[in-house]
Amino acid sequence: MTTQQYKKLLPAISGETRPYWEACKRGELLIQKCQKCGKYQFYPRGFCSHCWANEPPQWVKASGKGKVYTFTVTYQNRSPGYAEEVPYVLALVELEEGVRMFTNILECKPEDVRIGMPVEVVFRKVTDQVTIPYFRPAKA
């Protein structure tokens, strides 16, 4: 799939977040853990937002498993790329490590999504430069 064909919004990648997006290409979901206070944070930042430590947080590999914290089935979005995909599931997934991230729930019917449902990460290469993490119902 090329950039021309992918009509949805692409992430802008900066030094602060590049390790995350590079890991996605390898099929790994990274989150950050502070070396001083020990807390996880998401979305990634170049510093620990919890304690403002002098040292930047460490990148750690998340298990990729979690559960749906909340969601909505989107029936209307005027933006190109998304308008064609409705209805789609916008969700907040709570990872096993505790932090929550926005995502879409794929590989299931929107009406089957429930809060608390176990999910696992799945990666989709959308351009040569960008691979995006999504979630799907966890395999039993």
């Binding site: 949805k8 919004l9 692409l10 992430p11 802008a12 990648i13 900066s14 602060e16 977040t17 998401f42 979305y43 990634p44 930042r45 989107t74 209307q76 979005n77 933006s79 998304y82 995909e85 789609y88 916008l90 991230m101 926005f102 995502t103 879409n104 995006i132």
Partner: peptide
């Protein structure tokens, strides 16, 4: 999108 936080949210079709 801005690198943070938009790129971790809007890509998923937030409204």
């Amino acid at each position: 999108l801005s690198p943070v936080p938009d790129s971790f949210e809007d890509i998923y079709g937030t409204t």
